[in-house]
Each structure stands twice: as C-alpha cells, then as structure tokens.
C-alpha cells in the first residue's frame, strides 16, 4: 500500500506513521495508538481498528489473531457533558488539589 495512504481518517494517520511506530518497537494497536494517536479520534477506532491491526500484523509478520484488541472505552458514543451530568448525583470523585494542599505550619514532615 502507498505509504501516504491514510488509515485513521479521524486523526489523519498514514501507513507510514504506523510503520514508524512499529519500527520503534510497538507491537499492539494500543502501543501504536499511544505513539501516533490512531484510533483516538471521534470514532474511537470503530473505523480503523481492523485495518490497522492487520497492518501491524503484516509489518510484524504475525497473524491477525496475535494483535490484541485495543481497550475500548466508555462512553460508547460521544455524549455531551450536559447530558452526562443531568440525572447524576453531584457527589464528586474529584477533589481540588487546592483543598488537598497543606501549607506548612511549622511542623516539618
């Protein structure tokens, strides 16, 4: 395949980009994803997972069964923050780092 062919259209990642990640030692879709951003765009690898996995397999001279499936993450569809927030308890998983900061008060740890 032509090196400049796009394989991940969301992030415009080419065959050559994949080859470069593989040449650095990446072996799985997730490895390649972290180096190139392939599959990180709006479709979350729904379009490119198969072809990129096949490409990695080919470059590594492995079979498609050896290329594990990337981690697929929630939400399974893009959802507006306002929709996610509606109807959800506002008890927070997130504490501010300011609240957690403990200014010195003479005592040294």
């Amino acid at each position: 395949m032509d090196k400049s062919t796009i394989v991940c259209r969301c992030e415009e990642i080419t065959v050559e980009d994949i080859a470069s990640a593989v040449s650095q030692g990446a072996e799985t879709f997730d490895d390649v994803k972290r180096l190139t951003r392939c599959g990180m765009g709006l479709c979350q690898a729904k379009t490119c997972r198969i072809v990129i996995s096949e490409l990695i397999a080919e470059m590594k001279a492995k079979s498609a069964a050896d290329i594990s499936v990337p981690r697929l993450r929630m939400p399974l569809r893009p959802v507006p923050i306002g929709v996610l927030a509606a109807n959800t308890a506002s008890g927070s998983f997130v504490r501010s780092t300011l609240a957690e900061a403990e200014p010195d008060e003479g005592q040294e740890k």
Binding site: P75, I81, G82, L84, A85, T88, A89, S90, G91, S92
Partner: peptide, 10 residues
C-alpha cells in the same frame, strides 16, 4: 465517575 466528573466540569 463519568457522571460525577461531568458535574464537576460544569
């Protein structure tokens, strides 16, 4: 987590 963080973000 996602719901609670959405609230935090807003």
């Amino acid at each position: 987590f996602i719901g609670s963080t959405a609230n935090f973000a807003l």
